[in-house]
C-alpha cells in the first residue's frame, strides 16, 4: 500500500483499478433517464455509462440531482422515463437485496453501521448473504470457518483485523466509515458506489481512506467504482472520468484533465457560477 503522503499508484495505462479481460465492458448504463417529483424535475435525460476498469466521480452542487441519480443507479428509485441497466439487466426499482445479488454494493454518505454488532459480526452479515447461508437456522456462525476466514480477509484489507471483537459503536468515526465500506466490500461486488466516503472525516485522513479504498478495490477485484464526492481534490486524484450534474442535467462527462481545464464547469460545480444549457 502507498504511504500516506504518496499519490495513489495507477496501473500501467493510467487507471486506478486493476484492468482485467473484460475491461471496457459496459457495467452500468442509463438511457434517457428522468425522474420527476410532481412538477419538480430531479433528473432530466441522463445518459451515462460506466465501464469495467473505470472509477467515475459524480459531482455537482447541492440540489444538482446527485442523490436522486445514486438512488436510481442503486435500484432504490423507479425512473419516470428511461432505463437503468446493470450488466444488461433493467434494475429500476428492484431494491437493494436483488441489487446486491446482481453484484452491486453501496456505502452511504452518513455512516451506516450496526451499533451493537461487533466488527466481525458486521462483516459476517454481508458474507453470510453473499454465500447464500442466511436461511440456515441450524448452522452456527461461530463454527463456520469459511465465514471467519473471509471476515478476517476483508477486515485485514481495511485495517480492522485487530478490532474484530469490538462493537461498532465504540469505533472511531474513521473506523466506522471503513467498517461501513468494508461490509459492502464483503459482498464481493463487481461495482461499488461510494457516496461521499470521506464525509465527516478530517482533511488529513481523507487521502488515507481513499487510498485504502482503492487498494481494497484492487485486492477484491472490484471492476468499477462510482464515487460521489464534494472534495474536488479527491475527485481530481481518484477519478478516471468525472460526470458533473447541474439542475438534474449532465453538465460535463470528461476526464479529470479536461474537466479541470474548463473554469466555467469547475465554477458551476463548486456552486459559484451556473452554466447555461444549450
Amino acid at each position: 500500500m502507498n504511504g500516506p503522503g504518496e499519490p495513489t499508484k495507477r496501473t500501467e495505462d493510467g487507471r486506478l483499478l486493476r484492468q482485467s479481460a473484460d475491461s471496457g465492458t459496459v457495467m452500468i448504463e442509463t438511457r434517457g433517464v428522468s425522474k420527476h417529483y410532481g412538477p419538480f424535475v430531479a433528473l432530466a435525460d441522463i445518459t451515462i455509462t460506466l465501464k469495467a476498469g473505470e472509477m467515475v466521480s459524480i459531482v455537482g452542487p447541492n440540489g444538482a440531482g446527485k442523490t436522486t441519480l445514486v438512488n436510481v443507479l442503486t435500484g432504490l428509485l423507479r425512473t419516470t422515463t428511461g432505463q437503468v441497466l446493470f450488466k444488461g439487466h433493467d434494475i429500476a426499482g428492484i431494491g437493494p437485496v436483488r441489487l446486491a445479488r446482481l453484484g452491486m454494493a453501496r456505502s452511504f454518505q452518513l455512516v451506516h453501521i450496526f451499533p451493537e454488532l461487533t466488527v466481525e459480526e458486521t462483516i459476517a452479515v454481508a458474507e453470510i448473504a453473499r454465500a447464500g447461508k442466511a436461511g440456515r437456522l441450524w448452522a452456527s456462525v461461530r463454527g463456520d470457518d469459511a465465514i471467519h476466514a473471509r471476515v478476517r480477509e476483508v477486515a485485514a484489507i481495511f485495517g480492522l483485523d485487530t478490532k474484530l471483537d469490538r462493537p461498532a459503536r465504540v469505533l472511531s468515526q474513521g473506523d466506522k466509515k471503513l467498517l461501513d465500506i468494508a461490509s459492502a466490500f464483503a459482498l464481493a461486488p463487481e461495482v461499488i458506489l461510494l457516496d461521499e466516503p470521506t464525509s465527516g472525516i478530517s482533511t488529513g485522513d481523507k487521502h488515507g481512506i481513499m487510498k485504502t479504498l482503492v487498494e481494497a478495490a484492487r485486492t477484491a477485484n472490484v471492476k468499477a467504482i462510482i464515487l460521489v464526492e464534494h472534495d474536488m481534490d479527491l475527485v481530481a486524484e481518484y477519478s478516471d472520468r468525472i460526470i458533473a450534474l447541474q439542475e438534474g442535467r449532465i453538465l460535463a462527462d470528461l476526464p479529470p484533465t479536461q474537466f479541470f481545464a474548463d473554469p466555467a464547469i469547475v465554477a458551476a460545480v463548486v456552486g459559484m457560477k451556473p452554466v447555461r444549457h444549450a
Binding site: P96, A100, I113, E116, V125, A134, G135, W138, A139, S183
Partner: peptide, 26 residues
C-alpha cells in the same frame, strides 16, 4: 441454536439498521 445461526445474526442486523441490512443482502 437459532439465535447463534446465520439467521439469528441477520435478525440482529436488521434490528440495528434495516436499511443497511438490506444493502448487505438481508
Amino acid at each position: 441454536r437459532i439465535v447463534h445461526s446465520p439467521f439469528g445474526l441477520h435478525l440482529k442486523a436488521l434490528r440495528e439498521n434495516a436499511r443497511k441490512a438490506e444493502y448487505l443482502g438481508v
